[in-house]
Deep mutational scan, measured.
Amino acid sequence: LVRYRTISKIPQITLNFVDLKGDPFLASPTSDREIIAPKIKERTHNVTEKVTQVLSLGADVLPEYKLQAPRIHRWTILHYSPFKAVWDWLILLLVIYTAVFTPYSAAFLLKETEEGPPATECGYACQPLAVVDLIVDIMFIVDILINFRTTYVNANEEVVSHPGRIAVHYFKGWFLIDMVAAIPFDLLIFGSGSEELIGLLKTARLLRLVRVARKLDRYSEYGAAVLFLLMCTFALIAHWLACIWYAIGNMEQPHMDSRIGWLHNLGDQIGKPYNSSGLGGPSIKDKYVTALYFTFSSLTSVGFGNVSPNTNSEKIFSICVMLIGSLMYASIFGNVSAIIQRLYSGTARYHTQMLRVREFIRFHQIPNPLRQRLEEYFQHAWSYTNGIDMNAVLKGFPECLQADICLHLNRSLLQHCKPFRGATKGCLRALAMKFKTTHAPPGDTLVHAGDLLTALYFISRGSIEILRGDVVVAILGKNDIFGEPLNLYARPGKSNGDVRALTYCDLHKIHR
């Protein structure tokens, strides 16, 4: 019993810090008490220290592992850092350059016999395009090294910054494609005289377009951006097909006994025919423009016929181009109408809503002055909100995010209106959640004399007048207030005048 009563005193000691020596009952000389009392004092002292730490809000209350900052290894790049964003855009520009100039170089340097010394005699450094290609190869190699040090988000939505895990993730992902696209074939085969082989191998750079397509997928929600990307894709495919079309004609031209190829026909049409040795002929500019003209006309199913396939190889390629053109029509131009419709969806919704308003007016036989006010209010409210119901949009977000959005939407009023000066951010967040926005066209009466005042109004834009009878008592403008002081009276009061809008007004109100 003594032991039980001794232990039962522990909660009292913990909360009230009572010393055991003052209790005459606990001072009985028993061996059990002498053993338990020192333990009680020690526990009391420890609990006292913990309570003191909690009340003082000291940093040592938290466990040590929670006080440590997340460790980022040296030379690790955050995937959302500004440097990584700028670097990704730079790589994107280099990939676009590669997609345009690599097929052009591979096709127009394929057994090209233009006048001038061969590239091997001039030297590697004197070729501007080769120098640019070398810079692109170096940048792609540097990009691989950067990807080995860039964080990523795993399946659990955690940012991984450990170098080993980053390397394994990159090896399992895009490393092989990036490595093949970054191989400097110019340096590996330079001086061997195989410019045709170098041009063909350099087309491996186009593998990076797969990554670019995935990154550009984030802009699919913007109709104008999608339309622009589709047109660029169409032009890029036409450019690639033009390079292939020229390569076919250029390879067949020296081996044909009869002059029936499209390059021969082009030379005869523009007065620059090929001679018996295969030299001469149109310039590279004429060849490229004509090839691009043929691919565009074939892809769009126009086909004027002034550039036509004559050999079997050219006919087979033309059939493939027609098939590609039909697929592009289905996948690209078939979506253009939907994209344009999405661009004008706001206008369509406006006309639909206006039609419903006019049908309501016609069905209920609203008189002319009231009908005009109804239409003007709808037009003004639509121009202010673009038909978007803010309350319906915010309803799907958590309250903390709703408060931040409301604070942002009402920031101008909260910053410049005098009653809100000096208020804490928590108070402003709470008030912003209570605001209701209303609009009024010129001549609209917001409050009639004798109406119950259940709200306090803040003028965000425009001006109003307060009338008693036919006498203008006051004219209020931006950041002015009218209405009933909230919670100042037990019952809502009545208006002693009319409140009429002089201009288009936007008002925020808080109800009782």
Results as ranks from 00 to 15, higher is better:
67 L>G: 07
67 L>R: 05
68 Q>P: 08
75 W>K: 04
80 Y>C: 11
93 L>H: 01
107 A>I: 01
108 F>H: 01
113 T>L: 03
117 P>N: 14
117 P>I: 14
118 P>R: 15
122 C>N: 01
125 A>T: 12
126 C>Q: 03
128 P>Y: 05
130 A>K: 15
133 D>F: 01
135 I>D: 01
139 M>V: 10
150 T>N: 01
154 N>C: 09
154 N>Y: 05
161 S>C: 13
170 Y>A: 01
179 M>S: 12
182 A>D: 04
186 D>T: 13
187 L>Y: 10
195 E>V: 14
202 K>Q: 01
203 T>P: 01
205 R>Y: 04
207 L>G: 15
207 L>P: 12
209 L>T: 11
213 A>I: 05
213 A>C: 09
214 R>C: 04
216 L>M: 09
218 R>D: 03
224 A>G: 12
225 A>L: 03
226 V>Q: 13
230 L>F: 12
231 M>I: 09
231 M>T: 04
234 F>R: 01
237 I>A: 04
241 L>K: 01
242 A>V: 01
243 C>I: 01
244 I>C: 03
249 G>S: 01
250 N>I: 14
251 M>T: 04
251 M>A: 13
253 Q>T: 11
261 G>L: 01
267 G>Q: 01
270 I>T: 03
271 G>N: 03
279 L>Q: 15
287 K>A: 13
292 L>Q: 01
292 L>E: 01
292 L>G: 01
294 F>K: 01
296 F>R: 01
301 S>T: 15
303 G>M: 01
307 V>I: 15
308 S>M: 01
325 G>T: 01
326 S>M: 14
327 L>I: 05
329 Y>A: 15
336 V>E: 03
337 S>Q: 08
338 A>F: 15
338 A>R: 04
342 R>F: 05
355 L>G: 13
359 E>H: 04
369 P>M: 03
373 R>C: 03
381 A>K: 10
383 S>R: 07
390 M>K: 06
400 C>K: 03
402 Q>I: 04
403 A>K: 10
405 I>Y: 01
408 H>R: 03
410 N>A: 05
416 H>R: 07
425 K>P: 12
431 L>K: 03
432 A>H: 02
433 M>C: 10
437 T>W: 11
443 G>D: 01
